[in-house]
Design a protein around this nucleic acid. Sequence first.
DNA 1: ATGGCTACAGCATGTAGA
Length: 258
Amino acid sequence: MPLRLASFNVNSIRKRAGAVRRFLDRVQPDLLFLQELKCRTEEFPAAAFDGSGYRIHAIGQGAGRNGVAVLGRIPFEVVAEALPGDEADAQARYVEVAAAGLRAAGIYLPNGNSGGEEGYAYKLAWMARLRALAAARLDAFQPFVILGDFNVCPTALDLAPGALPPTDALVRPETRAAWRALEHLGLTDALRALHPGQRLYTYWDYGSAFDLNAGLRIDHALLSAELAERLEAAEVDVAPRAEDSPSDHTPLVVTLAG
DNA sequence: ATGGCTACAGCATGTAGA
């Protein structure tokens, strides 16, 4: 049986519970990682998933910020609710599970455009901690995937021309260098590996950006070598972005051979 | 290169997103 993993930044789960339920019913991922819940853990609209066959583990945050979750139709064990070395960080940006013989980390990487240079430094520090974690997993030969909203356009191919200024935290040279440092540990960018040279986006700003296809590729799945060898498919599922009242992101779906 | 969106807290706008 292939294993299907998905990631979806929902921009408020309370607004998008219906969209997520439709996605689950249609695509049937084994594990789905959500970002930007924008609610407290106890406010997660779990009732919308009654009868779906999915178990939910949400890590919310107050003040309508951040928040991640994992929904699984296969057994999974939550092994971390914060990026290791980051436990004191109150921001809900990380969830890691053990399932189907692998480790999967769902992330909501800091945007880095707010809070001035301090805010940007937080993003780079977070990326450095993520790299240290990935290095430890790879050193242990642990089948490992990191997926989620990375808030990084890795190359010029990953954003519509002119969509962002070169000073934006999503494309700054230091951001891209930190992404490459992750890749160079031996991780495979699943979507890019199967679609080299193609302009594929996972985010379109509200307004006219979707109609103009002026998007960004900022949601990613990075695979360890064991999982890269099993990579069968990686697709952007654009359908949820075309619905009424959508998230500004749309799901990324990765299929691994069983 | 933002906020012309959108969401949230909370009740007037400010913050954040990317």
